[in-house]
Simulated scan of single mutants.
Amino acid sequence: MAEMSVELVAVERRLWSGTGTFVVAQTTEGEIGIMPGHEPMLGQLVEGGVVTIATSEGEHVGAAVHGGFLSVTSDRVSVLAETAEMAGEIDVAAAREALRDEDEVERARASARLRAAGQPV
């Protein structure tokens, strides 16, 4: 099976890197799926999006991603987020509480956290 190098990086830290077979991300142009050999591209990530990586080991890695960029070459995907949280690090109760926030950006971030954690919104 074809593989590509994948990096998920936020301003403050590297969240995940390894090899993957498929990456799904939400950009300002819409949701995109990337496989090895994809045409080179650069995309802007949406505020309150989710990135999912299918690893070469058959696992799925998910993260709530808040802004940033996606860079794709034929053998590499780099997700460069302003901020991001791995699915396993998300406080579901706090995210549910934040859904009631008056700030639209905070509600979008809370929704992304819940989706990344596999929870209904």
Rank of each mutant, 00 (worst) to 15 (best):
M1K: 04
E3W: 05
E7D: 08
E7N: 03
E7H: 03
L8P: 05
V11T: 11
E12I: 09
R13V: 12
G18C: 06
G20W: 00
T21Y: 00
T21M: 08
V23Y: 02
V24I: 12
V24Q: 13
Q26S: 14
E29A: 13
E31M: 09
G33D: 02
P36D: 11
E39H: 05
L45T: 10
L45F: 06
V46K: 02
T55D: 00
E59A: 12
E59F: 02
V61H: 05
G62Q: 10
G62L: 13
V65S: 02
H66R: 07
G67M: 04
F69Y: 14
L70A: 09
L70D: 09
V72E: 11
R76S: 10
V77L: 01
S78I: 15
V79Y: 05
A81F: 14
A84E: 11
A84C: 12
A84F: 11
E85R: 10
M86S: 13
M86H: 14
A87F: 05
I90W: 12
I90N: 07
A93E: 15
A95S: 15
A98E: 15
E102Q: 03
V105N: 03
V105K: 03
V105W: 03
E106Q: 12
E106C: 03
R109E: 13
A110K: 10
S111P: 00
R113K: 13
R113W: 11
A117F: 13
Q119M: 14
Q119K: 08
